[in-house]
Amino acid sequence: MPVSRRFVALGLPVLLGGCVSARPAPMAYTAARRASLEPQYYDMYAELDDEPFPVPAVDIDGIDPRYLRQPVAYTGPERPGTIVINPNQKFLYLVQDGGRAMRYGVGVGREGFGWHGNATIKRKAEWPTWTPPSTMIMRQPELEEYASGMPGGPDNPLGARAMYLYQGDRDTLYRIHGTIEPQTIGTRVSSGCIRLINQDVIDLYRRVSTGTRVVVLSGGGGGEGDEFS
């Protein structure tokens, strides 16, 4: 049984370094809301066939349209190239020139597990390895086989890409990463990590480099203009 499905079957959370996944109740959207989606979104979240492992198409009819990738107005003070994360709104912004940003829906830390502050992307990885912490292996001895790391792949909880957040030379243990559970986007589900739909994290990964500044807001403050929702 794949590792993620095994955890669900046992009723146990999936721990991703500093990230714990708790599956939320499924959301329902009206037929009218689904019909309002522009055709481009179905292409944007279609199956990717140019990756080392399968990236299946996303059932975007089950995701609030606000959380689909889209360009928006942005009026915050951050310089272009900065990533700004608003945990309250479950949005990640990549600030661009001309008062614009690319906005992505994200899953964020559960109540009591959030964090905020400034960080820097110091490492990036495609199809990253997942290594359960020793404390988790003590609680779940069956994970001993992954003590040296679970290789990247379609069942790896970190998804297709990971960007590792540091403060100075200290690894915060928080990541911006993909997910094999796209239905968790727009929810509070982790222990602080920021997760994106795999198609979105691949897009973001291509746009940023190591050294990118990341700002995680502490309150409801945004920076977006009239399109803020």
Rank of each mutant, 00 (worst) to 15 (best):
133 P>I: 11
6 R>I: 15
15 L>K: 01
111 E>K: 08
100 R>K: 11
228 F>V: 12
106 V>P: 05
199 Q>H: 11
17 G>C: 03
23 R>M: 14
124 K>A: 10
1 M>I: 15
19 C>L: 09
27 M>W: 06
196 L>Q: 09
201 V>W: 01
36 S>K: 10
107 G>Q: 03
27 M>Q: 15
167 Q>T: 15
154 P>G: 00
34 R>M: 10
18 G>P: 02
209 S>K: 08
165 L>W: 01
107 G>V: 11
132 P>A: 03
178 G>F: 06
163 M>K: 11
125 A>I: 04
25 A>R: 06
188 R>A: 13
210 T>D: 01
199 Q>M: 01
195 R>D: 07
205 Y>I: 08
79 R>C: 04
168 G>D: 12
110 R>K: 11
166 Y>F: 15
39 P>H: 03
12 L>T: 14
61 D>K: 09
140 Q>Y: 13
227 E>G: 11
25 A>N: 01
22 A>R: 15
31 A>L: 10
218 S>P: 00
109 G>V: 05
194 I>G: 00
99 G>V: 13
170 R>S: 04
226 D>I: 08
154 P>M: 09
31 A>V: 11
117 G>F: 07
94 L>G: 01
61 D>H: 14
59 D>H: 04
126 E>T: 11
70 Q>L: 02
70 Q>D: 06
127 W>N: 11
152 G>C: 04
64 D>E: 11
124 K>F: 12
224 E>H: 03
29 Y>V: 06
155 D>Y: 02
219 G>R: 10
215 V>H: 07
68 L>K: 00
221 G>D: 09
87 P>E: 04
29 Y>G: 02
183 Q>M: 14
62 G>M: 04
183 Q>W: 15
219 G>K: 06
211 G>P: 01
59 D>L: 00
72 V>M: 04
183 Q>L: 02
67 Y>K: 02
58 V>G: 02
217 L>M: 10
215 V>K: 08
36 S>Y: 05
30 T>C: 10
142 E>G: 07
151 P>A: 08
2 P>H: 13
213 R>H: 08
202 I>C: 00
19 C>V: 13
19 C>Y: 06
63 I>S: 04
74 Y>I: 00
41 Y>R: 05
24 P>K: 15
222 G>R: 07
174 Y>Q: 11
173 L>T: 06
189 V>G: 07
128 P>M: 13
66 R>H: 13
71 P>M: 10
15 L>I: 14
201 V>N: 00
171 D>M: 05
15 L>E: 07
220 G>P: 00
205 Y>P: 02
225 G>F: 00
49 D>M: 12
51 E>V: 13
224 E>D: 13
183 Q>A: 11
59 D>I: 06
137 I>R: 00
56 P>C: 02
168 G>A: 12
187 T>Y: 09
51 E>W: 11
228 F>I: 13
199 Q>P: 09
